[in-house]
Simulated assay, not measured.
Amino acid sequence: MSETKATIIPPSGSGTAGPAFPPGRYGRRRDPRRLGSRRTRLVVAAAATTAVILAGTVVAVTFGEQYGPGRPYEATVERFYDVTDEQVVVEFSVVVPPGETAVCAVRARSRDGAEVGRDEVRIPAGDEARPQVVHRLATSDRPVTGEVQRCWPEP
């Protein structure tokens, strides 16, 4: 069997563009051009970096206002007690803007994490910025915890 010769690549600086491939055999070849000047690439990279930083800042500020500490309607469970097979008493405080009412979702969970009780508690408008609320929550099984899932303004 005879050996097939490979395409010879001319040495650099010989004036030819590169290897010569048989026509139609390997598809269309692209010219090895540069993608714009160095200055254009730097400007595009700087613009992309600036856009990513601005988008990240907007997202961070938005989520910080919605979910961060100190937001209106933030609830804190002080304690839960009187735990039986049918109930739990949850004592909590909630930040409510003056003159507004709020609704808080209170729930109880069992040992395996299943939700065994849930209720929405209305906090009426009052003079206190952080009213204390005591709520007796009925459960379908013995709870191990009572918690306030979240609070929101009453529509």
Rank of each mutant, 00 (worst) to 15 (best):
85 D>F: 10
66 Q>T: 05
96 V>R: 15
1 M>P: 00
154 E>S: 11
141 D>W: 03
130 R>E: 13
10 P>I: 01
136 R>A: 09
43 V>A: 11
26 Y>L: 13
145 T>C: 08
43 V>C: 04
25 R>P: 02
22 P>G: 08
105 A>R: 15
110 S>P: 05
30 R>T: 15
28 R>F: 04
45 A>H: 04
12 S>G: 02
101 T>W: 04
142 R>F: 05
88 V>H: 14
147 E>P: 02
39 R>H: 03
152 W>M: 12
143 P>L: 14
72 P>V: 10
80 F>L: 05
44 V>F: 12
19 P>W: 03
41 R>V: 07
6 A>H: 04
4 T>M: 00
99 G>Q: 06
144 V>D: 11
99 G>H: 13
13 G>R: 02
142 R>P: 06
91 E>Y: 06
16 T>Q: 09
17 A>K: 12
152 W>E: 14
27 G>N: 07
1 M>Y: 00
9 I>M: 02
98 P>V: 15
36 G>R: 13
154 E>C: 04
150 R>S: 13
42 L>F: 08
104 C>S: 07
9 I>H: 01
149 Q>Y: 13
114 A>Y: 01
146 G>A: 08
95 V>W: 13
25 R>C: 05
17 A>R: 13
13 G>K: 01
99 G>C: 09
138 A>H: 14
15 G>K: 05
126 G>P: 00
139 T>A: 09
80 F>N: 09
113 G>Y: 05
31 D>M: 13
9 I>A: 00
125 A>F: 01
64 G>E: 02
93 S>H: 14
150 R>D: 12
42 L>E: 06
48 A>I: 03
3 E>W: 03
10 P>D: 04
8 I>G: 02
22 P>N: 10
58 V>E: 01
93 S>K: 15
102 A>T: 09
6 A>G: 01
48 A>Q: 05
27 G>D: 08
122 R>F: 11
79 R>A: 03
46 A>W: 01
149 Q>H: 09
121 V>F: 12
90 V>H: 13
90 V>Q: 11
43 V>K: 08
7 T>E: 05
17 A>M: 09
87 Q>W: 10
34 R>M: 04
120 E>C: 05
118 R>I: 07
45 A>S: 07
82 D>W: 03
66 Q>R: 14
129 A>G: 08
105 A>W: 15
